[in-house]
Computed example of a mutant assay.
Amino acid sequence: MRARRRGERPAVAYLFLSPWVLGALLLTVGPMLASLYLSFTDYNLFTTPNWVGFANYRRLFADDPRFHAAVWVTLKYVLIATPLKLAAALAVALLLNRVSAASGLYRSAFYAPSLLGASVAVALVWRVIFDTNGVVDHALAAVGIDTGGWVSSPRFALLTIVGLSVWQFGAPMVIFLAGLKQIPGELYDASAVDGAGWWRTLFSVTLPMLSPVIFFNLVLETIHSFQAFTPAFVVSSGRGGPSDSTLFYTLYLYQKGFIEFRMGYASAMAWILVLVIALITALIFRTARSWVFYQGEVSR
């Protein structure tokens, strides 16, 4: 009787796991494999896919200057927005960690923009603020600076989207704040006894002990930055302008797949993005060995 019940347990486990397994196969693994196949075809959604081998990949790297522009714009965005967002989140978390009165109110206020997410409504409001005759344009004109609107300027359009990303620093801020609460107070007491100032304590105690959290936020925000789409789509009205200055990789992928109906070409772009994100994530993990410190770990 006992042996029979033991034999029944795996079957029951598989029964409860079956919805997740079916969902993963039908909604994730299946579409991924289908897009991998389509990346080697000429497919426009209306006709049978025509196998072309690596032609889509060769055309991307050799014959598509807008693809190169999209790669460059996305890299600039990742390199600028990610560190600025993490720096803002860490700075506010350090301040909130020292605030005792009304700390819950401050945390909620700083976290509120992240609740809105990358919504179309927020991006539309952001565009109005930075557009010609917007609030920012009027404020700068009052002090003698005429930009003609940030959104319509090739020099400032990308910075507009960077500003929107940095403004929504609430999620990494909360994670940083949780990490700061876990740092033992004895370390700060020892630092004070040794006569270390605020800056020395920050770089010798706080940041090393917070390095696992910094690593976690860095990985997540880097991936999110590569996948950014909605702000660029709304701010540029789906065109990536002016002069392709906001032509994000995902936006160009959308144009190829759902405007020009070159779904095979878009699938090839999608798989290149997957591989790039995987390589950069692996690189971050590899470098983490030299700067991430875990409490209780023996010094290397």
Score class of each variant (00 low, 15 high):
3 A>N: 13
4 R>F: 13
4 R>L: 14
5 R>H: 13
6 R>W: 14
7 G>V: 05
7 G>K: 12
8 E>N: 11
18 S>Q: 06
18 S>L: 15
20 W>F: 15
23 G>R: 07
24 A>S: 12
25 L>M: 14
27 L>T: 08
31 P>D: 10
32 M>D: 00
32 M>N: 12
36 L>K: 01
37 Y>F: 09
38 L>R: 06
38 L>H: 09
39 S>H: 00
42 D>A: 13
42 D>S: 14
42 D>V: 10
43 Y>S: 06
44 N>W: 02
44 N>H: 03
48 T>F: 11
50 N>R: 15
51 W>C: 05
61 F>H: 08
61 F>I: 11
61 F>S: 07
63 D>N: 11
64 D>Q: 08
64 D>E: 01
67 F>M: 07
68 H>T: 00
69 A>T: 04
70 A>L: 01
71 V>H: 05
73 V>Q: 09
76 K>V: 02
77 Y>G: 01
82 T>N: 10
85 K>P: 04
86 L>C: 00
90 L>H: 04
91 A>I: 14
93 A>H: 03
94 L>T: 03
94 L>W: 10
94 L>E: 08
94 L>M: 12
96 L>M: 02
96 L>E: 09
101 A>V: 15
103 S>G: 03
106 Y>W: 12
108 S>Q: 11
111 Y>T: 04
117 G>N: 03
117 G>Y: 07
117 G>D: 12
119 S>G: 09
120 V>I: 14
120 V>D: 06
120 V>K: 05
123 A>M: 00
129 I>Y: 11
131 D>W: 07
131 D>V: 10
133 N>E: 13
135 V>A: 15
135 V>Y: 08
141 A>C: 09
145 I>G: 06
146 D>L: 12
148 G>E: 08
148 G>F: 05
149 G>E: 02
155 R>Y: 13
155 R>W: 13
157 A>N: 01
160 T>H: 07
162 V>C: 04
163 G>I: 04
164 L>P: 01
164 L>A: 07
167 W>H: 01
167 W>P: 05
170 G>W: 02
175 I>H: 06
175 I>E: 01
175 I>D: 05
176 F>E: 09
178 A>S: 11
180 L>K: 05
180 L>A: 07
182 Q>E: 14
187 L>F: 06
188 Y>K: 10
188 Y>D: 02
193 V>E: 10
194 D>V: 10
195 G>E: 05
196 A>P: 00
198 W>T: 15
198 W>L: 14
200 R>S: 12
201 T>D: 09
206 T>F: 07
206 T>M: 10
208 P>M: 10
212 P>I: 11
213 V>H: 06
223 I>A: 08
224 H>T: 12
228 A>F: 02
228 A>R: 07
231 P>T: 08
231 P>D: 09
233 F>D: 12
234 V>G: 08
237 S>L: 14
239 R>Q: 14
244 D>M: 06
249 Y>C: 03
250 T>D: 01
250 T>E: 02
253 L>Y: 00
253 L>P: 00
255 Q>K: 13
259 I>C: 01
266 A>H: 02
269 M>A: 09
270 A>D: 02
272 I>Q: 03
274 V>S: 00
279 L>E: 03
279 L>G: 15
281 T>I: 04
286 R>S: 04
287 T>Y: 10
290 S>C: 06
295 Q>D: 13
295 Q>E: 14
300 R>K: 12
300 R>L: 05
